[in-house]
Design a protein around this nucleic acid. Structure first.
Lengths: 225, 225, 225, 225
DNA sequence: GATGAATGAGAATTCATTCAT
DNA sequence: CATGAATGAATTCTCATTCAT
C-alpha cells in the first residue's frame, strides 16, 4: 500500500531535493571521516533525517555511492569545461587552463574531490563495480586523447599518455589536501602545481632538440577534455 | 619465567614465522580487496588459521596494521637505499636512481605499496594515529630536504618542495596500478614514469635560460634520502 | 523531525513498552542466574527478541544496567514511602515501618532487590561507575541521617550510624533469599527480621540505664527517609 | 608422555607450592577487581605464570574456585576457633568472642573474605554447585545450632535462628569493606559492629520481662561454632 | 514521503581449554 | 613441570536493510 518505489532517475520535486540533501551529507561525512566511517547512521544524523529514508531514496548503499559520484563528476565536468571565449591557442595552454580550473574548483568544492577519490578507491577494491569504473575510465580516456593530440602536434613531450594521465589523476585526487590557508597561499600553491605538470610534459628545448616536430605547431582546434 | 601473549617485541622462532605469515595475508587481502574488506575473518581465511590467532599475535587490529606498515616500510627503505658504488654525481641523477629503484621494488612488491597506500589513507581519516602518521611525515620530510638541497645547487627547478613531494608521493602510491604485463612493458613504463618527474623538476634549458644559478653545479656529496 | 536511535529520555509508546519488557527480562535473568550470566543473548532469548534489539533501545550494556537500576530503585522508593496517615510517632516506629514496607515489597518484587544487589556488586568492582555508585551512596546517606536524628533524640542507641546503615543495607540485599514459602511463614520471618534491627539499635532499658538521654524523648516530627 | 594429571588432592611438594601461589593470586584478583574480571589470563599475570599452568593444576575454572574457597574457609575456621583457655562463660560472651575473632581475621585477611563472598555469590547463581553450596550450608548450620543452644538456656532472645544466621553471614561478607584506615579506627568499628549483633540477639531486660527463662542461665559448656 | 521498530550478518576481542614440546 | 601455540564459543556492538504504519 505504500507508494511505488522511486525509480531513482526522474522524480518528483521534493524527491530531488531529498536526494540532493542526502548526497551532500554523504560527501561531507566521507570527506571528513573517510569512507569507512560513512555509515547510513552517520550520514542520516548529518542530514537530520532517519537512516531508513536513505534506503527509500537509494535502494542500496551501492546506489547511493553511485549517485554521489555522478553528482560530483557532473559538477566537476561543468567546472572544467571553461567558457567559450577563452579558447586557448596551444595545447600546453589548454592543459594549463584545465588544471587551473580544476584547482579553482577545488578551492570551493574540495570535499567533493576528496570524497570522490575516497569512494573510487573503495569501489576499486570490489572488483571494479562497472558503472563506477566506467566513469573513471571515461575521464582517463578523454585525458589520454587530449594528450595524444597535443603530442601529434609536437606540443607535448613524447611520454606514454596513459601514464601521464594516471599520474595526473592521482595528483588531482590529492590536491585538496595540499596546504592552503590564505587565499594568497592557495593561489601560489595552485600556480606551482599547475606549472609542475605543464613542465613535466612540455617539450624541452634542451640540447637534444627533437627537430622532427613543429614546436610552434598549428593552433589547437578540436579538443574534448 | 613466564610469558602471556607476547609483547610484540622479542619473539620466539615460530612466533616470528606466524607474524610474518599473518602480515603477508593482510597485505594480500588489503591490496586485492581494499582496507574495508580486511577483516580478521578474511585475513585468517587467507592464512588458513583461526581469526583468534591473529589476536593472539597482535593484540588489536591497530597493532596488526602498525606491524604491517612497519614491515612494508622497512622493506621499501632497504630497496631504495641503493648500493654504495653507484653513488650519483648530480641531484637529478640521484632522484632518477631513487625513482628507478622504487619502480623496480614495485615490480616485485607492488601489493606492498598498494597495501601501504590503502592503510595510510584509512589511518588518515581516523584522526591520524600518531605512530603511523609519523612514518609518513618522516618520508615526506626526507624528500623535501633532498629537493631543497638540489635546488640550493641550482640543479632542481624552483618549485615548492613540499608540493613536489606531495605529488610524487601520491604518484608513488598509484604506481603499482599502472599497466605492465610483460617485463618489457614494465621497463618502458617505469622509464617514462621516472623521466616524467625528473623532467618536471629539472631546470629548463629553454630560451629564457635562468642564468642566476650555476646549472653545472657542484657535485652532490652528502645527503642520502 | 527525525530521530535515529532514541536518546533514552523521551520515548514513543511502543518504545516504552519494549524498554520495560527488556528491563523485566534483564531483572529475571540477573536474579535467577547472576550478573555474570546476563549476556544480551540470554536476556534477548528470555524476552523472545533478537539481541540487536537490546542495543537498539539501550545503546550500551552499561546504559541498560543503569536503566534497570533506575527502574528498580524508583519502584522501591515508591514502595517505601508509606502513606501519609500512618506517620509514626517515634524513631523506632519509623524504622520498623520502613523495614516492614521493605519486606512487603520484597514479597512481591524480590527478584528486583536481588537483581539490584547483584548489579551494584558488579559495578562496585568496576571502579564504581559514577551514576550508579551515587544512587547507592544517596540511599546510605539518607539512612545515616535518619539514624543520627533518632540518636539525637535518644531514641536510638549510640552506634556508628554508617556502620549500622552498612549492615542494614547488606541485610536488605540478602532478604529476598530468606526462606518463605507460605504467606504465613513469610510474615513471621519478616516480623522477626524487622525486630532484629529495631532491637539492635534500640536503647537498652537494662540495669545500667543510660540516664543522660531522655528515653521518652520528643515526638518525631520532620525527617523523611 | 607427559606426567600423570595431578589428582588435585595429595601432591608433590612443588605442586602444593604452585597451587598455593595460584590460589593467592586468584584471591587478590577477585577481591580487587571482582569475580567477573577474574580470568585465567589476569590471574596468571598476577602470579607471573602462564595461564595454561592454572589448567594444569586445576583442571577447570570451577575446580580452581572450589580450591580457593576451601583454602579461605579452612583459614577462617582456624582463626575463629579460639584458644582453649579463653573459654567463655556465657553464650553472649561466646558470640562476642567469635565475632571479635572474625573481625580480627578480617584485618589481616580481608581480601580472603571479600573474595569468598564474591565467589559464593557467583556460584549461587549456577544452580548452587554442590560442593560450594555445602560449605556455606555447613557454616550456616553450625551458627544455627549455636544460637539455638543459647536460646535454650535463655541467654539469647527468641529470634528465628536461621534468620539471625543469615543476617549475620551477609554482614560478615560485607565487613571487610567497612572503613578502617587507622588501627584505632578499625578497633572502634569492630567493637561497634560486634556490639550490634550481640545487642540484637540479647535478652532485653525491658518492661515485659520474659520470666520463664533463667536469664543468668547455666554456664555454657559444649558449643561448636 | 518518512519514520520507528526490528533483524541477521558480521565486526573485534576475550575466554577457558587442549596439546605438543 | 611449564609453556607457547592454537582454537571454538561467546562477548558487545554496528551495520544495511526491510516493513508496517
Amino acid at each position: 500500500m505504500h507508494s511505488v518505489p522511486p525509480a531513482e532517475g526522474r522524480s518528483s520535486f521534493i524527491e530531488q531535493a531529498r536526494q540532493a540533501q542526502i548526497i551532500r551529507a554523504t560527501i561531507d561525512v566521507v570527506a571528513e571521516q573517510g569512507y569507512g566511517a560513512a555509515s547510513f547512521a552517520r550520514i542520516a544524523r548529518r542530514a537530520s533525517i532517519s537512516p531508513a529514508l536513505i534506503n527509500y531514496h537509494f535502494r542500496t548503499k551501492d546506489s547511493l555511492m553511485r549517485g554521489v559520484l555522478a553528482t560530483i563528476e557532473q559538477r566537476l565536468d561543468a567546472a572544467m569545461a571553461g567558457t567559450e571565449d577563452d579558447e586557448p591557442e596551444t595545447y600546453p595552454d589548454a592543459l594549463e587552463g584545465m588544471l587551473r580550473r580544476f584547482a579553482e574548483h577545488c578551492w570551493t568544492h574540495g570535499e567533493e574531490i576528496t570524497a570522490m577519490t575516497e569512494i573510487r578507491r573503495e569501489m576499486r577494491s570490489e572488483i571494479l563495480r562497472e558503472a563506477v569504473a566506467q566513469s573513471h575510465e571515461r575521464g582517463m580516456a578523454e585525458l589520454v586523447a587530449f594528450i595524444r593530440e597535443g603530442q601529434s602536434y609536437g606540443q607535448f613531450r613524447d611520454v606514454d599518455p596513459a601514464l601521464f594521465a594516471s599520474v595526473l589523476m592521482s595528483a588531482m585526487g590529492e590536491f585538496p589536501r595540499l596546504p592552503g590557508n590564505s587565499a594568497e597561499e592557495r593561489r601560489r600553491v595552485a600556480a606551482d602545481w599547475v606549472s609542475l605538470f605543464v613542465n613535466a610534459i612540455s617539450v624541452t628545448a634542451g640540447p637534444g632538440e627533437d627537430a622532427d616536430h613543429d614546436p610552434a605547431g598549428p593552433t589547437r582546434s578540436g579538443s574534448g577534455a
